[in-house]
Design a protein around this nucleic acid. Structure first.
Lengths: 333, 333
DNA sequence: TTGTAGGCGTTATCAA
DNA sequence: TTGATAACGCCTACAA
């Protein structure tokens, strides 16, 4: 178990001084070195399998090229592609991701933020979407993904929830539906709140009534919670827009329980287009959101902020796409 | 945005030398300092909001309390729960996870290993293990999860693929099947190889023939690859054991294409029990593996190795469970 | 273009 | 028990 090579080893092998090796190794300063020496150094580095010691570099430069990524739970199917997108964008810039799960627990989130900041994290990407979250640790660049705060003081990357719900409502209206219900996600999360908001706006735009009992709150973005909430809906509805796909699946099972068939009796639209949405019976009509792209963009935005921390807080909104499958049909009642 | 306090600031405030402050702050060495001074230092630290600079500490101690986790692709549904388990176990020990995806690309894997090692990673958990992978070069503690090498020189956490396949074969045999086929995963991966091996052994144990064309290789653990491989199977088979669930879904669509019904004409068994396996039509019978537990155990094992690097390489094998659903039925032919 | 020197914050070793 | 000192590996003025 020998110790990894240092820049000194590389320099010795290339017969230059460590300072020169440093300049040759760093693309930023490479042009302050003759091309010939630079090549020699680069080759020496490769032959030794040299990797810069980032602790030393961090100590010197006060940056770590590491971003903290904090999400509620990786097992929620929306997050893997987001995290993957983040990682790909970070990698392009030589950054890596420190990952942490909070299970929606604020205390744990704060612990994680503290622990990561102690590890010299250059910035944070948070997907832990409460609407009223306190501003993150000051001075450390932060970007929100898939959520945003009510006051727009933190840069964020979200998808166009409003347009997505509007297109779903429009589709149902075009199919003749008017008694449309909404099983909303948790209202303390920006996604749950925005989609309910958009639902009300869209229904109003189409001059359709929404009696209070046609909106039921699901306590979580899960199939079980959706099932429970859907059972409270009145029986005269002909279509449901669900807060997300898992809630939509909960609606499926609730309908089944009431002896109703989808889409014959009730149409259902989800949100997210998770994997396997197209394999459900019936295949789920849903609003596809660009998970990977949102992750990717959020990392780009973070990198931007890291290099220009005082730039104004952008809010990026990515377009969504309605994917029509078998869970919607013309209104029969 | 003023710079954070250093140990020197704490020492000055407590009127001691920095070295003493360091001893007082570190629980390990606290007893080398008088209780009175220790208290003074601790209070000074708190009042300044002191947090140690982990870059400096890493530089000095060569440890970082960070583990590198390298997987092929987070979007593959088996990995999120594994990674989550890893993270939970690491957190218990004050560790964090640096995550990297390789897409099965060896070059990228080496890049990642290098970059992570440069970041002072204390150890690695690899879920990318090809069977013939050489040991990681440089004595950095490493654990494989969900994979292992043919020579057992690297600690690993896997599930009992052999028992899983045996129980699947037994179920099918009990249902009267004898012309059982296997759509195997990639043979350079230990999971693909072990399951095929176990299939042959199990069939032999039940005195059943396996003509060569009843084993077809899938080039990847994906639905598409499974579909393609399944199309090459002879038509007289009455049951398929798939290398994993995604391959099993590929078998579903291949059967459909041949006008065969599952389970009426052909029974299908998968492996892994990914989310939504129970929502397929028909609901997939499969071998459930303890994803989260494997991740958790692998992190525990890594921590063990970090504290005792020369201990013998354990190989942990976790039990699996056959989940019977609607994709198997008594043999009708 | 290259070398020299100093310091980032912490901790381990040695001396008092 | 405490203090002084050096060193971890890298980067960057500054000097040559």
């Amino acid at each position: 178990m020998k110790k990894p090579p240092t820049i000194k080893d590389v320099a010795d092998l290339a017969k230059v001084h460590a300072a020169t090796a440093s300049r040759a190794l760093n693309p930023q300063t490479r042009d302050k070195v003759s091309a010939r020496t630079a090549n020699r150094v680069l080759e020496a580095a490769k032959s030794l399998g040299y990797a810069p010691n980032s602790a030393a570099r961090s100590l010197r430069t006060k940056t770590s090229s590491v971003a903290g990524v904090i999400i509620p739970d990786l097992r929620n199917p929306v997050f893997p592609p987001i995290v993957r997108g983040i990682e790909d964008a970070l990698r392009e810039a030589g950054y890596m991701a420190l990952l942490g799960n909070t299970d929606g627990n604020t205390e744990r989130e704060n612990e994680l933020l503290l622990a990561m900041r102690g590890r010299q994290t250059d910035g944070f990407i948070l997907a832990t979407g409460r609407r009223a979250d306190p501003a993150p640790p000051d001075g450390v660049p932060t970007v929100l993904v898939n959520r945003r705060t009510d006051i727009g003081d933190i840069p964020s990357v979200t998808c166009d929830n409003t347009a997505g719900v509007f297109s779903a409502v429009r589709l149902l209206v075009d199919l003749g539906h008017s008694r449309i219900a909404h099983v909303a996600g948790p209202q303390e999360l920006s996604t749950g709140w925005e989609r309910r908001r958009a639902f009300l706006d869209a229904m109003a735009a189409f001059d359709l009534e929404v009696p209070p009992d046609r909106i039921q709150m699901s306590t979580a973005f899960t199939e079980d919670a959706g099932h429970i909430a859907a059972q409270r809906l009145p029986v005269d509805i002909t279509a449901i827009i669900a807060g997300n796909d898992l809630i939509a699946l909960g609606c499926y099972s609730a309908l089944e329980r009431f002896g109703l068939q989808c889409p014959r009796d009730v149409s259902v639209v989800g949100f997210n287009d998770i994997p396997f949405a197209n394999q459900q019976r019936p295949a789920l009509t849903t609003v596809r959101i660009p998970h990977y792209g949102m992750g990717f963009e959020s990392a780009r935005l973070l990198l931007e902020r890291i290099s220009a921390p005082t730039s104004p807080a952008k809010r990026v909104v990515l377009p969504v796409e309605l994917i029509r499958r078998d869970s919607v049909a013309p209104c029969s009642r």
